[in-house]
């Protein structure tokens, strides 16, 4: 417990006495980690963040901050700050005043405020913008100010609600790296909400995948990508081929009308399962030697690799590969035992 800065215990949130947005969630967040809540819209990730920030109260369950229960603590008494989705900068104050807002409430001396604000402006690379108005800044610049305004209060946890959602792709990539750098520099806990799996994979120490008000899987980005627990996660994180199969016995699975050796066990005998294969894990060979044989339907050059759709006995397979084959030709496909992921059906 002492290692965790935030503990959510059995959190349930119900709106209007009807729809439950969060369904009995348990989540702990370690000190100084970068944790991402990842999931499609409506999965409850923003509600979770708002409960930590104090903008919503859980219907059931408890929120702990450094071991102390903070359920009823209003947001302005929490050592947690938030970077809002659309920045929420105060339009009637200039950039300096926006960042100084929290410090002024704490009645800190004017000189100290000046030093701290300038430090923050430097951290986010906005030194020359102190006197500018909010609406004269671009989206990316407003983003940096919003981060500075939150960090200047030296919170122990920073909450970020899809902060890069409104930026264009190129800017978003740049900010991802910068945010990670800032987090390492200030050395505090970041709780980050996004629906963008790539963003989650690049930035996080830990990812919690959410769907329908539940946490589906929590772990390091590599583990989540390589060992997704359910077909939903496999499909949501990266692209996947998902086919129906039967687990004949341990280490042996049948799908696409033939048996494959795999590394999974303990599913029982002759159990229906979902089989997940990543597009980049399928190896292309000649039609005669491949485990599976199919016809190339499309082949699109994607920069680093080709994306091909292969039709095999009514099933469609997606392949990412650095080599390709002409559309209409037949190819063979090989899948290694450790690249086949078995999941319980319907989980």
């Amino acid at each position: 417990m002492s290692q965790n800065i935030i503990d959510l215990k059995n959190i349930t949130k119900i709106y209007d006495g009807e729809t439950s947005v969060l369904d009995n969630i348990d989540l702990y967040i370690r000190k100084n980690e970068f944790l991402t809540l990842l999931g499609p819209s409506g999965c409850g990730k923003t509600t979770t963040l708002r409960i930590i920030g104090g903008f919503e109260y859980p219907t059931k369950g408890d929120v702990f901050f450094e071991g102390k229960r903070i359920n009823d603590l209003p947001p302005y008494k929490r050592q947690i700050n938030t970077v809002f989705q659309k920045y929420a900068l105060f339009p009637h104050m200039n950039i300096f005043e926006n960042i100084a807002f929290g410090l002024r409430i704490k009645k800190i001396s004017e000189r100290e405020i000046r030093t701290k604000v300038e430090e923050m402006l430097q951290l986010v690379g906005m030194e020359s913008f102190a006197k500018r108005t909010v609406d004269s800044l671009s989206g990316g610049q407003q983003q940096r100010v919003a981060i500075a305004r939150a960090l200047v209060n030296e919170p122990k946890v920073l909450l970020l609600d899809e902060p890069l959602g409104a930026l264009d792709l190129k800017l978003r990539k740049g900010m991802q790296i910068e945010l990670k750098k800032i987090q390492q520099e200030v050395g505090i806990t970041f709780v980050y909400v996004t629906h963008d799996q790539e963003e989650a994979l690049t930035m996080s120490d830990t990812i919690a995948v959410m769907s329908e008000g539940k946490i589906q899987q929590i772990g390091a980005p590599e583990d989540i990508y390589n060992e997704p627990k359910t077909a939903f996660i496999a499909d949501f994180i990266g692209e996947s081929n998902i086919v129906k199969g039967i687990m004949i016995k341990d280490y042996l699975v049948e799908f696409a009308d033939r048996t494959f050796v795999c590394v999974d066990r303990d599913f029982g005998e002759n159990t229906e399962v979902d089989v997940v294969v990543r597009p980049e894990d399928i190896e292309i060979t000649s039609a005669e030697t491949g485990m599976l044989k199919g016809k190339v339907i499309t082949s699109t050059f994607k920069g680093v690799h080709y994306e091909m759709i292969i039709k095999e006995d009514g099933r469609r397979w997606m392949i990412h590969s650095t080599i390709t084959a002409p559309v209409g030709s037949y190819i063979g496909m090989n899948i290694g035992p450790d690249l086949i992921h078995i999941m319980k059906r319907g989980a």
């Binding site: 809002f84 929420a88 105060f90 807002f101 409430i105």
Partner: peptide, 27 residues
């Protein structure tokens, strides 16, 4: 008025009175 501005002010440590004085009324 954008309700997140009020949330943002509370997040930065402003109580109800300060929120009114510094955010709601000026806006």
């Amino acid at each position: 008025m954008d309700k997140t501005l009020i949330e943002a002010a509370k997040d930065l440590g402003a109580n109800e009175i300060t929120v009114f004085r510094k955010i709601i009324f000026p806006l």
